[in-house]
C-alpha cells in the first residue's frame, strides 16, 4: 500500500482533531512520522516534520536539524495567480515553518483561471517563513516561501 498526498493530508486532519501530538506509522513500505508543531520535541525524536509529502520509502529518520539562516533560498511564484497555502479551504497548509522539504515537495498552489498549478520547492531545505498569504494574488517572481539550508 502506498500513501499519496491526499492520504497524508487526511491523516494530518485527523491528527489535528485528536488529542495526540504525534503519530508514527511504520509498515514494510513506508514510515510516516507526523507531529503537531506546538508539541515540544521529545528527546529521542528527530525534530523533522514531514507534512504534505509522503515519506520516501526506506528513508532513514532525518538527523537532528538546525537551520543555517545565513543561507536562505527563496521559492518564487512561477506565474501570476492566486496563491493557496493549503490544498482546500480549511485544510492544514502544505508546509509550516520548520518543515523539511525536498525539491519535489509541494509548498502551495497557484490558481490561474480555475487551473491549479502545484508549486514545488525545487530544492531541499527547511521552511523559515511562508511569505505569501493564502488566497492572495501573487505576481510572477514574488517570494512565496523562504527556505534555510539545514545543517546537521
Amino acid at each position: 500500500m502506498n500513501l499519496n498526498q491526499e492520504d497524508v493530508l487526511a491523516i494530518l486532519a485527523l491528527l489535528d482533531g485528536s488529542d495526540f501530538d504525534e503519530l508514527r506509522i511504520e509498515t514494510a513500505d513506508y514510515k510516516l512520522h507526523l507531529r503537531r508543531s506546538s508539541a515540544s520535541p521529545l528527546p529521542d525524536t528527530p525534530p523533522a516534520l514531514i507534512a504534505g509529502s509522503p515519506a520516501p520509502p526506506d528513508s532513514a529518520p532525518a538527523p537532528a536539524q538546525t537551520v543555517d539562516d545565513r543561507e536562505l533560498f527563496d521559492i518564487k511564484a512561477p506565474m501570476l495567480g492566486t496563491f493557496y497555502a493549503s490544498p482546500q479551504p480549511g485544510a492544514p497548509p502544505f508546509v509550516n515553518v520548520g518543515a523539511v522539504v525536498d525539491e519535489d515537495t509541494v509548498v502551495g498552489i497557484i490558481e490561474v483561471m480555475k487551473l491549479m498549478n502545484a508549486v514545488c520547492a525545487g530544492t531541499g531545505g527547511v521552511v523559515v517563513e511562508v511569505v505569501a498569504q493564502d488566497g492572495q494574488l501573487v505576481e510572477y517572481g514574488q517570494v512565496l516561501v523562504r527556505l534555510g539550508r539545514s545543517t546537521s
Binding site: M79, L80, G81, T82, V112, M113, L137, E139, Y140
Partner: peptide, 24 residues
C-alpha cells in the same frame, strides 16, 4: 503587477494570466 518573464508569449500574450491579474 508582474505577469511573467520578458518574452511576450510568457507574459503579455497570456489571456488567462491577464484575467487572473485583473481579478486578483
Amino acid at each position: 503587477v508582474c505577469i511573467g518573464p520578458a518574452p511576450a508569449g510568457d507574459s503579455y500574450l497570456r489571456v488567462q494570466t491577464i484575467i487572473a491579474a485583473a481579478v486578483g
